[in-house]
Design a protein around this nucleic acid. Structure first.
Lengths: 361, 361
DNA sequence: TTGTAAGCGTTATCAG
DNA sequence: CTGATAACGCTTACAA
């Protein structure tokens, strides 16, 4: 309103009748105990608000040798939410958390981003002067290693590469998956199939492990069909992979899909085979990003992505703290999943033989 | 690898045996014709690459009085992709385009974001020193007005508030919707329903207009049921609103849903009513963000959001150009939609009476 | 407790 | 065509 160019600390100083450095002290030392007398602080603050002053973030950053910019390296080059829901959702939460903590986030396309390919990831990060890097479920250790070797603070989120020693905030699938299996077993299901990603990635393996451990608790391990493993989290692959399963003579009565988009593929196969959900087949997904919006609304294991975003920023902030001892080991955090019941599960069509538990409701 | 602190222009100057200012000239005047002799330019560039030098973005920004930060104000506070697909997708494209043009984007939560509510939108933008603001389909003119009044360059994207004079890049629904209707009519459909948002927003109205104009071209206006209007783009509202339509004695044979998430609600209603798509009901959506991933894969009118993002950045860049005459009127761009056929349409179950056109296929 | 002064790494103006 | 020199707006010893 008043003047086009924003007021500077010099303007405030002049109006408050103090030196410019004092103004800076008032606005900087706000966290620690006051380093400036209450009286002058009052005057400075009054002058500042009357002039509509706020410290210039760029000038501050330049002086402090901190850009305030974080890089997010997602697991895949994002395309559309249905194809890869987690990167979309996580990007949102991370960005939001970062903003609240005074950071900006730039998203560095994964492999294939032209921005990166011309020169590689590390030079790109250097040019942009990022303060730290957050990897979202990196598929290989190489990129992570390079960034660590370059001396940049790194946090790996959701599903880390443990081969590289960095701070991590990972998601523990066990609680949610355990609850999901308990729920299905309580309904009377005995043959529950698993559709998820195979391959060498530990965290994919973790989901399967959690699934099998939960079944084992109910002494059901032998009754379970082999896991249906796909090469990537994609609608089409899940669709193609699950079709043979549905054509089996004694097909499962419930399916656990280790991702919302895998569930989408499974749903397609079910619709085409005219198998109704949940009457003829119960279905549970993992992610809970758009599970609630499908038909029927899908029971799902929810990943706490908002928490993960928040924690990732906390970890990076800790790493950036100059007071932090250099030899302190990196922190490893764990965020629990939880299970949400909706309308995609019910007791199986005909109780299996030797069923000793009465189906619920 | 070499040294922790990045090399500065002074280092480069020393190594190349020139003054620091010359280094700056080499890196700044890259766009215009060379202001520095080829020989020295060569030497400077060599020294720079050997030192791994690149200009510090923050220092440059501070000096040029340009933060390089753009604010994106989405139509709604984003939650999940299925609830509001367009903001998710547009945010991705805009951010990506911005990055390629050297800008960062911060997303300012719409109404209700705590970041904003403490002080209001304009003070927030001022504190962050954003260079410009991009509104994504603003629902009211007030916010836009305030930002314009504050003197910030503004671009309105997708569906603008024309009450406020700003640069705009909007999406023209007519080509895509026209093609969709042509397609349905060619298949033999005569009763086509419209499900979309009502209310005073011109661009919602535009979709309905395009729909009705397309029908009129086929002299079908009278045959169409009243449009089903919902108050907001939401799965639940579409579901609730479309149910009475399906219960009608002579229900439509095809439905056009003016948003992917509206289509999701319509699909739910259809499934529950055991009306099969496309055999008993053809369905076309608008947005084409996750239409292809549903079952059946939905024919959809695609919005060119990637183009819109690119153009929005172009417009903002033009506005930021100091050489631009002050009285030059704001540009108004238009991006065309197009129609994508998939597996959610087919000829209607029984041809309507008086049908003179032979159904295709 | 407060003021002075030296940068942070650029760009821009103005001589030469 | 090139080199000094003064900002850009702030933080941070160090001095008073």
């Amino acid at each position: 309103m008043e003047d086009m160019r924003g007021a500077t600390s010099v303007d405030v100083a002049r109006r408050a009748g103090v030196s410019q450095a004092t103004v800076s002290l008032v606005f900087t030392g706000t966290s620690g105990r006051t380093r400036v007398s209450a009286a002058t602080r009052e005057r400075v603050l009054a002058a500042a608000t009357s002039l509509g002053y706020s410290p210039h973030p760029l000038a501050r950053a330049l002086r402090q040798r901190r850009s305030g910019i974080l890089a997010l390296v997602p697991r895949v080059h994002r395309t559309t939410p249905a194809v890869a829901p987690v990167p979309f959702q996580f990007s949102l939460y991370l960005t939001r958390a970062a903003l609240h903590h005074g950071f900006h986030v730039i998203e560095v396309g994964a492999a294939g981003d032209p921005v990166v390919t011309e020169g590689g990831l590390v030079p790109f990060l250097r040019r942009r002067r990022v303060d730290g890097v957050i990897f979202d479920g990196p598929d290989n250790a190489r990129d992570v290693e390079r960034v660590v070797a370059a001396g940049l603070p790194v946090v790996q989120a959701i599903r880390p590469q443990f081969a590289v020693e960095t701070a991590t905030i990972m998601v523990d699938p066990a609680p949610g998956i355990g609850a999901a299996i308990d729920h299905l077993v309580a309904l009377g299901h005995r043959r529950i199939a698993f559709v998820g990603r195979g391959g060498p990635y530990p965290t994919d393996r973790t989901r399967l492990d959690a699934f099998q451990a939960a079944l084992a608790r109910h002494a059901l391990v032998a009754a379970t069909a082999d896991p249906v493993l796909v090469a990537d989290y994609s609608v089409d692959q899940a669709y193609a992979a699950v079709r043979p399963l549905l054509a089996q003579e004694t097909r499962p009565t419930a399916i656990f899909a280790a991702g919302d988009n895998l569930a989408l593929g499974v749903l397609r196969a079910l619709y085409e085979a005219r198998i109704r959900v949940p009457d003829e087949m119960s279905l549970v997904s993992y992610d809970d990003i758009f599970a609630a919006d499908l038909y029927p609304p899908l029971a799902s294991v929810a990943q706490p992505l908002a928490d993960v975003g928040e924690q990732a920023i906390t970890l990076i902030t800790a790493l950036l703290d100059p007071a932090r001892p250099k030899d302190q080991p990196a922190a490893h955090l764990l965020a629990a999943t939880h299970f949400v019941v909706r309308r995609s599960t019910c007791p199986p069509p005909r109780p299996s033989a030797g069923n000793q538990t009465a189906p619920a409701g």
